[in-house]
Amino acid sequence: MSLDKNGIAKRIAQELHDGYYVNLGIGIPTLVANYIPDGMEVTLQSENGLLGIGPFPTAEEADADLINAGKQTVTAIPGAAYFDSAASFAMIRGGHIDLTVLGAFEVSESGDIASWKVPGKLIKGMGGAMDLVAAARNIIVAMQHTDKEGNSKLLKQCTLPLTGVRCVKRIVTNLAVIDVTPEGFKLIERAPGISVEDIKTATEGTLLIEGEVPEMEV
């Protein structure tokens, strides 16, 4: 069975390490925060100027002066820090953030990502995504393997305007965990009950398969 959004988030949480500073994008990536293993210290950065995002507030705690990059009300954990936008992107651009998790419309087999613009349809802007993908040490994309019409989102080449080039390291979808290698996409794990054949069919780009592909443990 393919994974739901929480399943994807749960699998991505397995990529976290103690001491990591992590930036989570809007959508599925935000859910990763719910699956940080107990006892592991992971500090979440929000590019609008917060290091140490806490849980969503209660109705009484909600504070207009305390939001995340998705403009939602949040709380700050004890030991959090606030800073301005230039300092925030110094953290990002300077390579001080260990991992970025973000969504995408398309990823190419060379690691290009398109996530911000659909010409003629959607004009919202790139926000911090271009800065994040250009600079983070490790970038994981969380997305559905195919779009609503069933078209693959893992392509030989992106068709939409790019957010960044040759930057995505790993993709976690509802069907699989896939790495971007110099030779193309490499299948690492299958979602429970999903066959290699299912994943091949749903992947337009080159897909390398080596030996037995294990099932994810989620």
């Binding site: 651009r93 290009d112 271009m130 800065d131 250009a134 790019l162 960044g164």
Partner: peptide
Amino acid sequence: PQGTLAERIRAGGAGIPAFFVPAGYGTE
């Protein structure tokens, strides 16, 4: 890009006319 916008403003205020960033390389 948001970080480019923030840094362009920071640089403007700090008397720095231009600088180089990786964000947006290979994009429009």
